[in-house]
Design a protein around this nucleic acid. Structure first.
Lengths: 143, 143
DNA sequence: GATGTATTGTTGCAGATGCAACGATGTCAA
DNA sequence: TTGACATCGTTGCATCTGCAACAATACATC
């Protein structure tokens, strides 16, 4: 048994490779960290989300959300305010500048992803997409 | 388009979930960081490897290898010395304690991986393994 | 050999990260 | 209403990480 054939290692390497490609785009061309990218992604297509929902849907913890949101506010890409329904939470929404920034950036990120995924055998690619969904179901599954 | 259906995000989440499960084992039960785990994994099954080979085969850069190797040496799990063939490099080898530590730890890590992977539909699992190999080939491919 | 260039491991340092603690707020039972 | 407990966002702090610089070594060319 060598590490190159140990499946969890293979999965980590494959995911890191694709992630690094995309991060190269939204960091260099968009000036965003991975956490900021995820938060902006979530907010760009909806009216507003609470910090709690952002955390759950981005797979980031509350500290990461707090810090990423601060930086995005400083950049003028989102704005946040104390929630009126539960004053422990904060409601976040995209600014127009944030929406524009995201919609300018997203096609480039998507294109880079396609550059990598497009090199795969189509059947391998379909298998990967199916398998990843299966693993996600198994991970947050009913245990 | 929401982030939950964006494939690169799904892949990152799935990989992070499995990785966190395994890290929980080799960190808590083995006292190893992810970098230390990979280096020990590589050295446990061979006579010796140079720092350069460790870096390439572990997908870690030279700084990470240098620091992980230092910590493993402090713990008495590996030993290193300047290579005689290329004195810029270092040769690393497992100690007996290191080999014993790894072979006591590995089945537990493998078992945890099986706990997660075993919850997958067998066809999904086969698809995942095939897809990951395909993505790795596409990543370090002939481009 | 001498010299210039490339590669490797290590280290310093600035920035990022994870964790625990804290105050503020909400919830629920009495 | 009061009190006990839970949840949320933020902040300090210790640690980790990535990046650039550096010294040592190897290699190619002359």
């Amino acid at each position: 048994m060598t590490i190159e054939t140990f499946f969890p290692y293979q999965l980590a390497v494959a995911a890191a490779a694709l992630s690094a490609e995309l991060e190269d785009v939204y960091r260099r061309e968009g000036g965003l960290s991975r956490e900021e990218w995820r938060v902006l992604f979530l907010l760009a297509n909806v009216d507003a989300l609470t910090s709690k929902e952002l955390s759950r849907r981005s797979s980031l913890d509350k500290v990461q959300i707090s810090r990423a949101a601060h930086r995005l506010e400083e950049k003028g890409l989102i704005r946040g305010a104390q929630s009126t329904q539960d004053r422990r939470l904060r409601d976040y929404a995209c600014t127009e500048a944030g929406r524009a920034h995201f919609h300018a950036l997203f096609p480039r990120v998507e294109a880079r992803a396609e550059e990598v995924m497009g090199q795969m055998d189509p059947d391998d690619r379909a298998a990967l997409e199916r398998g990843v969904e299966g693993l996600i179901r198994a991970s947050d599954g009913p245990d």
